[in-house]
Nucleic acid binder design. Structure first.
Lengths: 190, 190
DNA sequence: AATCTTATTGACCAGTGTTCAATAATGAAA
DNA sequence: TTTCATTATTGAACACTGGTCAATAAGATT
């Protein structure tokens, strides 16, 4: 029994986050328990509560970082040089799906978790990411799109990712379908 | 302590289902506990396990009856007399969303639940429902749609429902958005 | 050296799904 | 009517969960 660790292996937020992310991704939100996280960190579960208010907040901080990754994906597409706006739009749609399906557990954590505790925390993360997305679409669209149309595009992409997340299909397995779904949405707005 | 109730108030599957359905709808799958259900029924939580193998199975049986309601909704739209095929298509899209958002817990079970216990109980359900949907769309579409396009339409509707299920928004709150989303999809296939 | 601050522990609480021996009510056979 | 197997119910027990907190030891400050 030693109520405090020696300096060189003190617990850090970063260490907790790193371990917790792996466990959340591997087991999902509810199955990844604070005690399991603590075991992996070789500390007591109580210690985590010194660094994070509760499980939902720990989760939230992880997901927040993931949203920033999604933003980066969109930015990189916008930065790329493509021949036409249509090609860029296609690229955004396609890469959004690719991101969702190659980071399925992350996507799940970001958009699909259905937990009351978590839900109260998760509001501006998705919103900010969406605003990013909407602005990109709007700047590339051939005609002035209504806000509702952009929202429809997003929800349609979201539906694709959601469906294949649930059946745990890899992006490789559905890349042709992803391509045709992206094309379908282009058709709707051009 | 009386290890068995007298005949007139014996527990029945129907009584359990009725109480459990209310609680599942009110509190969601994980928060509605077997003990709460038992309390409302004024029996012990152990008794429920005599009638149902486990919580997941109880939930599944509750919703099984409603599982075919979606098919019924589609059938009733097809049976209705509408002026144009476009109107009928719109109706199908709109009513699909309406169904999903007015039976959120059921929709969640059918398409979104990630719980391993629950998932093993339902696999062919969604598939059968989709085949029904696809056939309806195909018979009403103005031009011969590719299978991929129909699939895209479905996923796009699914995305709408999924999103608002997660935030527990009522259908009433988003019916205008539902309408414009349906219109958006009509635009993509006409 | 004494004191203050900080990080950690682990006992504890109330809750969860699930199992199961014990047992009482029921219905059928003797 | 009495025996007896079947059936339905209980509640204790188990192994978990997220969360709280007094006790305490390591590090920092004076």
């Amino acid at each position: 029994m030693s109520p405090r660790k020696s300096a060189h292996d003190e617990l850090t937020k970063e260490a907790i986050i790193s371990v917790a992310r792996d466990l959340f991704v591997k087991e999902g939100y509810s199955s990844a328990s604070m005690r399991k996280i603590a075991d992996t960190l070789q500390c007591s579960h109580g210690a985590i509560y010194y660094h994070f208010k509760n499980k939902a907040q720990l989760f939230y901080e992880i997901v927040e970082a993931d949203f920033q990754k999604l933003d980066q994906v969109l930015d990189s597409v916008l930065g790329e040089s493509a021949d036409t706006n249509e090609q860029k739009l296609f690229s955004i749609f396609y890469r959004y799906i690719q991101f969702g399906l190659t980071h399925q557990k992350h996507y799940e954590l970001m958009f699909l978790i259905h937990d009351d505790d978590v839900k109260s925390y998760l509001n501006e993360g998705p919103n900010k990411s969406y605003m990013h997305f909407a602005q990109a679409i709007n700047s590339l669209a051939p005609r002035s799109l209504s806000i509702k149309d952009i929202w429809s595009v997003f929800l349609s992409l979201h539906g694709f990712v959601t469906h294949y997340c649930r059946s745990e299909t890899t992006f490789e397995e559905v890349k042709e379908l992803a391509s045709s779904h992206a094309q379908f949405l282009i058709k709707a707005i051009f």
